[in-house]
Amino acid sequence: MNFGSLDLNTVWFALVGVLFTGYVILDGFDLGVGVLHLFAAKRDEDRRVFLNAIGPVWDGNEVWLVTGGGALFAAFPAVYATVFSGFYLAFMLLLCALIFRAVSIEFRSKHASLRWRRFWDRSFALGSFCSTLLIGVAMGNIAWGVPIDERGEFAGSFLGLLHPYALLMGVTTVALFAMHGAIYLVLKTEGELQAGVRARVNPLIIAFILSYVLLTLATLLYVPHVTEAFRREPWFFALVVPVVLAIANIPREVNRGREFYAFLSSCAAMAGLMAIFGIGNYPYLVFSHPLPEHSLTAFNAASSPKTLGIMLTIALIGLPVVLAYSVSIYWIFRGKVRLDKMSY
């Protein structure tokens, strides 16, 4: 396919953003369920309900990360290489956390022993928590900027990645995913269990808003290249309005018992937050701090126009199909969780 004079680099910047947004929204709720697992579900059956609420969809959700990673590799190889080798230990810990939470879901209920289940419950919760935190810390570093040398290689250290701004982003992400997961659980549970989860929604929203306000203040004060983007194009601030409205809408819908709309609002808020994140960073994929001239951008780190064109063709064929059957599958598994003998 020939895409003429289309700015493929910007298109792919946006598309990689779309894939990661899909990941954050979808795996966001099942990671959030994991974060809440030990606190919000105390009985064995409740925990099984939690696991089966995400059972049919969690691995499809994780594919958004795999595909996002693949797309980053293909569209911006230099970013993939620099970030993944530079954040080496952080990514190894993330992998370890993702492995544990994935297999815990599968293993946990397959053996009827208290110790077995307790072990995998903990590993599921801890794996989910650590994955979420590390994803947040990684995003925090991308926004803050990391030291890049003249070869385009990472020039920092593992401990250097754990600065306050990145950690604050990590905490914000944990609060966001936990909130998102709680709303999803309200949608999938009933009775006493649902009441327990419902009571956690508002505190989690408040926790998220507090940390997000702090994060925004820190961004305005200390991350000039992000503020610069908004100063250049002030209408981007308009994006903040729907995000605020969407978040404000969540408690309203929960109180009215319209859980599905609450969940949609939460999804919309996350999409808006990712859009703000993406626009704030454009065209930087990895901002070099303190030497901005070494930054990796959508233009200097990209594959050839030919490859970007081929991949756009692949994406245009593939993504609509993926969306169509993903929506059908979510539709088939709508409604409250019922445990049967094929359940986890």
Binding site: G60, E62, T67, G70, Y80, I314, G318, V322
Partner: peptide, 20 residues
């Protein structure tokens, strides 16, 4: 990378989606 991305779009989504 493009082969890997195609694998994600065409294979992994299909597999994991219908696995449910």
């Amino acid at each position: 990378g493009s082969a890997l991305a195609a694998e994600g779009i065409f294979a992994f989504f299909l597999e994991s989606g219908f696995l449910a």
